[in-house]
Design a protein around this nucleic acid. Structure first.
Length: 513
RNA sequence: GCGGCUGUAGUUUAGUGGUAAAACUCCGCUCUUCCAAAGCGGUAUCGAGGGUUCGAUUCCCUCCAGCCGCACCA
């Protein structure tokens, strides 16, 4: 295991490389940046696109049972009421200035405590618990208030009924004793915090025009479930796949692009018959996702599984397993595979009044399908391939001096540039003419670069940092000897061999898919 | 949202109460027969705003951004 300092250094090195080579910039940098937002530069946008394309090809094009979808980012506000996001994403939060602890106001209860003459002595705040536990806690706090804070000789007084702390009034706050506080008045007013970005549709900013930027792409696929059934020939089981931006107003965006406020999801909702073996289906998708991650070059050694304990499952889920990735800052969630049951379709059925059913020809019955959902963040995969591929190696030059080489070992499938075409020398026209001809031919099909700047070694290293798997050098052997061969220099091994144009295209055809 | 640390060229860093230096990168030119060659030239309102001061990149305050920890993450 690396130490926190090393991890931090690795992340700094990655951020630095990402900027230096044009993978990722901070958003709005010239205005001081904006927390939780990022831009993808010329190399970054290629890498990101390749990740998306690889997923789409494997998930949609190469399967018979999955079709694609692209739904709008802003949807009818009722969608988010039905999905539970309006209620679920609104957490009123309370901070304690003394203990620095943070509570959810809807999980706190408070009670006024008065002496027998009716004078208010204070408000006791306790955390949600079973009824008798809660009363026990309340009693403890009363004793604490009387003897430690008010410094009285004997107890006595009455407490009023418990109320949810969300109802606390500003003038009561100075007399509130926080659940873990030793002084009065350390709690803040509950502040509503909704993870959804709000906006307004139309010209008038009244409450009827409130809309949300979607916090997940999934709901678009549930809402269009009927449309797809009615207009295409899909039969259960089948999947709807979507790639698109989602937005969450995270309290604290952290770890570079890992948790940001604007991010891109690749989600697939796989609809199955309610009587189908959902557990087996869930296992199948779990396996599929792991295999796919390996196919884009993530090493198995960095992957692990995390099964959500039953008591911590989200309300819609019967089972959720996360594929975890060992990032420099720790093992974190990469891909969540959730068995969402029929929760979402049933919710939309109820809220919209439109039946969300599928006609089962076999039983002649209408059923509401269940759903298995693999959901992954493009940006998280991006960071994972960057972190896993990044290496600084010691390399010996011809004099035996040790130098350092920075290399990004990206899979040819997703590398932003597949091949760099390099004339050995810039000022020899036979070399550059042949190189430019090859470049022109390659770029019809692949993302390639032409580079004639500086010495050849420098150009190799530059491509190493960009993650380009192969460099092709047009040298004197190309133009002087028969066979029209080039030097093929391989990124990871730095080995060189001679290759013809036909062989090069064959290599690319096999490796870039 | 809280606490600690930080912010000087594209990157990594040096430095000072009297308007800034280096290495590498990048761009241009010269040169160069396979792993960051050499030479010349170019690139900074020292994160932003305010205050103290004759004078602030340096000291103070606020904000913004970043890192670490806590909390949060339906």
């Amino acid at each position: 295991m690396s130490t926190p300092a090393e991890s931090s250094n690795l992340m700094e090195a990655l951020v630095s490389l990402a900027k230096r080579r044009g993978f990722i910039y901070q958003s709005s940098e010239i205005y001081g940046g904006l927390n939780g937002f990022f831009d993808y530069g010329p190399l970054g946008v290629e890498l990101k696109r390749n990740i998306r394309d690889a997923w789409w090809r494997d998930m949609v094009h190469r399967r018979d049972d999955i079709v694609g979808l692209e739904t709008s980012i802003i949807m009818h506000p009722k969608v988010w009421e039905a999905s539970g996001h309006v209620a679920g994403f609104t957490d009123p939060l309370v901070d304690c200035s003394e203990t620095k602890l943070r509570y959810r106001a809807d999980q706190l209860y408070y009670s006024k405590f008065s002496d027998h003459d009716g004078n208010t002595l204070g408000y006791l705040v306790v955390q949600e618990a079973a009824h008798d536990e809660l009363l026990k806690a309340l009693d403890k706090r009363i004793q604490y208030l009387i003897f430690k804070i008010l410094d009285r000789e004997q107890s006595g007084g009455v407490h009023s009924e418990l109320k949810e702390f969300t109802e606390v009034k500003p003038d009561e706050l100075p007399l509130c004793l926080g659940p873990d506080a030793k002084k009065l008045g350390t709690l803040t007013q509950p502040r509503a915090f909704n993870m959804m970005f709000e906006t307004n549709v139309g010209a008038l900013k009244d409450s009827s025009s409130v809309a949300y930027l979607r916090p997940e792409t999934a709901q678009g696929m549930f809402v269009d479930f009927r449309n797809v059934i009615d207009t295409t020939r899909v039969k259960l089981p089948f999947g709807l796949a979507q790639i698109g931006k989602s937005f969450r107003n995270e309290i604290t965006p952290r770890n570079f692009i890992f948790r940001s406020r604007e991010f891109e999801q690749m989600e697939m909702e796989y609809f199955i018959h309610p009587d189908a073996d959902w557990l087996a289906c869930h296992e199948e998708w779990l396996k599929w996702c792991q295999d796919w991650l390996k196919s884009i070059g993530l090493p198995e050694s960095h992957l692990s599984l995390h099964e959500h304990p039953k008591e911590k499952l989200a309300f819609y889920s019967r089972r959720t397993v996360d594929i975890m990735f060992r990032y420099p800052f720790g093992v974190q969630e990469l891909w969540g595979i959730a068995a969402r049951s029929d929760y979402d379709l049933k919710q939309h059925q109820q809220f919209s009044g439109v039946p969300q059913t599928y006609f089962d020809e076999a039983t002649k019955a209408k059923v509401v399908p269940h759903v298995i959902e693999p959901a992954v963040g493009v940006d998280r995969i991006f960071l994972a391939v960057l972190a896993a591929g990044y290496a600084v190696e010691d390399v010996k030059d011809e004099k035996g001096n040790v130098e350092q080489r920075t290399v990004l070992r990206l899979s040819p499938r997703i590398a932003p540039v597949k091949v760099a075409v390099l004339p050995l020398l810039k000022n020899k026209e036979q070399l550059t003419t042949r190189a430019k001809a090859l470049y022109a031919k390659l770029k019809q099909r692949y993302a390639v670069q032409y580079d004639d700047g500086g010495a050849i070694g420098k150009r190799y290293r530059r491509q190493d940092e960009a993650g380009t798997p192969w460099c092709v050098t047009i040298d004197f052997e190309t133009i002087e000897k028969p066979g029209d061969t080039f030097t093929l220099r391989e990124r990871d091994s730095m080995q060189q061999r001679r290759i013809t144009e036909a062989e090069l295209f064959q290599l690319l055809g096999e490796q870039v898919y």
